[in-house]
């Protein structure tokens, strides 16, 4: 096919890039002397890097090492790869690669290096909280703990259960079944006594809208439980058996902070998996992951409960 336009219509050449001033075969050819000097510089910098690694500068070893490497990389890219005399768009293109790599690192690091800090009310929950509990025997209702529960109730519960605990909060309209009315003595799933409410707060109610509040510290959950009972028709006390059911074997002893970690940080979870697999010797591939299968979520349990014959 005859390509006539170049000779006949010199103005029809393609739109040049603003920065593309490389035309007319004006290729920059790297002089041999510059190439040799660059080689010597690279060799010198390599010796410096190796030498520096024997000097102990603490974390600065890393910083200096990377700076020297970057100078070397810049020499290779700028002179050997001729980026210095090239279309500037190419430098922008190549640079953008490193820029986005930097973004990748800088936004992965806030997770990968700051993992495991689960805070509730400004307190890290990664370890069982010891010695900071305000209420030594949180299962015993006192005016202070009920007041504390009332404050927590306003923060955590009123959207569904309503300010007066009637189960008519703003969000209740969308819920089926409706939230519990705390002023009535009917239908309490785990019984209407503080330990029952404590259990509900910890586990949530499968099949209903009640979520687990296990991220709250145990004493906060006890406080809520006492408050919820206090707004009911009568104040019910826990029996020793009720308390034993939620792990309080001896109600006369002070709280030791032994309530299990409310939220397992990922690092701990990973340790558990590693230990379990080491113990059972199933660390190899092609073994179905047992992770999460032993502990069915509430939804799974409900599904299992609904037995039906598949019409296959």
């Amino acid at each position: 096919m005859a390509d006539q336009k170049n000779t006949n219509h010199p103005q029809t050449g393609h739109e040049p890039d603003v920065n593309a001033n490389q035309g007319d075969h004006g290729h920059y050819i790297l002089p041999d002397s510059v190439a040799l000097k660059t080689l010597l510089a690279l060799a010198g910098l390599t010796i410096i890097t190796v030498g520096l690694s024997y000097v102990h500068l603490g974390p600065w070893n890393f910083v200096v090492g990377m700076i020297v490497a970057t100078i070397k990389a810049a020499l290779v890219a700028g002179i050997f790869m001729n980026l210095k005399h090239d279309d500037r768009a190419n430098a922008v293109i190549f640079g953008s690669g490193f820029l986005f790599l930097g973004i990748f690192f800088c936004l992965t690091a806030p997770d990968a290096l700051f993992r495991g800090d689960v805070y509730v009310n400004g307190r890290p929950l990664t370890l069982p909280v010891k010695g900071v509990a305000k209420f030594k025997k949180a299962w015993e209702p006192t005016p202070e703990i009920v007041a504390h529960g009332k404050a927590l109730f306003a923060q955590n519960c009123v959207t569904c259960h309503g300010e007066a605990g009637l189960g008519n909060g703003p969000a209740a309209a969308a819920l089926n079944p409706k939230p519990r009315n705390f002023t009535a003595d009917v239908g309490w799933k785990n019984g209407r006594h503080p330990a029952g409410v404590f259990k509900t707060l910890k586990e949530g109610i499968a099949g209903g809208g009640m979520a687990s509040f296990a991220t709250l510290p145990a004493e906060d959950r006890w406080s809520l439980a006492h408050y919820v009972i206090s707004i009911g028709p009568n104040v019910v006390k826990d029996t020793n058996a009720d308390l034993a059911a939620v792990g309080i074997a001896d109600p006369t002893k002070e709280e030791t902070g032994s309530d299990e970690t409310p939220s397992i940080p990922v690092n701990r979870a990973m340790e558990f998996i590693a230990n379990e697999e080491a113990a059972s010797g199933t660390g190899s591939a092609n073994v179905k992951a047992g992770v999460g299968q032993s502990d069915l979520s509430g939804y799974d349990r409900r599904l299992e409960a609904h037995t039906f014959a598949p019409s296959l």
């Binding site: 986005f100 973004i103 936004l107 806030p110 997770d111 990968a112 700051f114 993992r115 990922v266």
Partner: peptide, 17 residues
């Protein structure tokens, strides 16, 4: 390129991230 972490909100990603 700077929002991918919203897929990891409940994966155990750090609170900071």
């Amino acid at each position: 390129f700077i929002v991918w972490g919203h897929h990891l909100f409940v994966s155990g990603q750090s609170e900071l991230a």
